[in-house]
Design a protein around this nucleic acid. Structure first.
Lengths: 190, 190
DNA sequence: TGAATAACCAAGCAAGCGCTAGTGTGAATG
DNA sequence: CATTCACACTAGCGCTTGCTTGGTTATTCA
């Protein structure tokens, strides 16, 4: 649960867990599957995590934190115009979903599996990330780049982006950046 | 598995199963939970369904079939203009998700849990539904109502709509029709 | 009235689940 | 040199899972 408790070993195990959670889903991933993937026996897992829930919490914290950091960096490094910022956010979102196709996906699709305590503990991370989105979308709305209700627009955009996990083929001809640009192009008033 | 095997009793049980699958997810729903909800003992369940997988298949078939029928009826009964048809499809989609907030949600979010045989058997239903969408979207593209790649546009729209399940509050002030109209308004060129 | 059929129940099995207890390492620390 | 510590192992406990079996009740129809 603690952010401090992040030995290199634990971090590596978290990375492997994320991969399995994406492939199989949290519920279908057994501690024995996790252990095998990590090259240890199932009992040894509980030296690093107090229970299976804590593994999920670690993965989701990693994924959300990662998304937040990358998104912040992206909009800092891009031109301050609303369109560029919107594009940067969309690209950053898909980058965390596909370039390292693991923890952020788990954060989005398995959040409900967190117990209430862990969910409360991590919700500020998710809120910060969504606040970043609302900020960028507000800029685009004020510039007349897009139109609609700020709440609904951000939800629709995030929905369109998140759902790509279900159909996008990373081995296909399109890059994640292509997707981001297409989405921004689709919603922009002309 | 069979479409013919649909006694009234089985249909009612399928409806109850859908409700639990939405609340808990397929994996976390045990046959004992299902039986209790249905007012029978867990063993009796297997008189109606050969195994748990078949319950899921029945729910998903119901949900997808329902969505297809309602969508077809909607675009038949609305004006033949591209914008009206697009709006009708979006409304129909959300209607099957929320008005009867069960089977279609399961079809969307638990499809991966189908075994390959059932998935293959049901994929034509899903394909027919998506083909309907592509047809309507093609009309909107040709009319210059929206712009972009037909494949990507349909994926983005469906993603935005599907993700509403995660955040929409049916008890709030907005109706599903409001959502549909807002989404169409957001993507339309002005 | 009696046979057929559909719907159900009580009991429980085999397998798999998360997790624990107790022990053995080799490397770092005093 | 003794102690500690991080990390791993073996073995299995207690429980839940999906599902089966063998038999009972309710309903339908000849």
């Amino acid at each position: 649960m603690n952010v401090m408790n992040e030995s290199p070993r634990r971090k590596e195990l978290t990375r492997l867990a994320a991969q399995l959670f994406v492939q199989e889903g949290f519920d279908r991933t057994t501690v024995r599957m996790l252990a095998q993937e990590m090259g240890i026996k199932s009992g040894s897992l509980f030296h690093h995590f107090k229970d299976k829930q804590e593994i999920l919490a670690a993965v989701i914290e990693e994924g959300t934190h990662n998304a937040l950091v990358i998104a912040r960096r992206s909009i800092e490094q891009c031109p301050a115009e609303p369109e560029a910022r919107l594009r940067a956010m969309a690209r950053a979102h898909l980058e965390t979903l596909f370039a390292d196709r693991n923890a952020h996906v788990v954060a989005l699709f398995e959040w409900r599996r967190l117990d209430p305590a862990a969910s409360a503990h991590l919700s500020h991370l998710r809120d910060a990330y969504e606040a970043l989105w609302v900020e960028v979308i507000d800029g685009a709305l004020q510039a007349g780049l897009i139109h609609g209700d700020r709440f609904l627009v951000s939800r629709f955009i995030l929905g369109a982006l998140n759902w790509t996990v279900r159909w996008y083929d990373p081995n296909g001809s399109r890059t994640p950046d292509d997707l981001a640009d297409e989405l921004v192009g689709m919603i922009m008033a002309r």
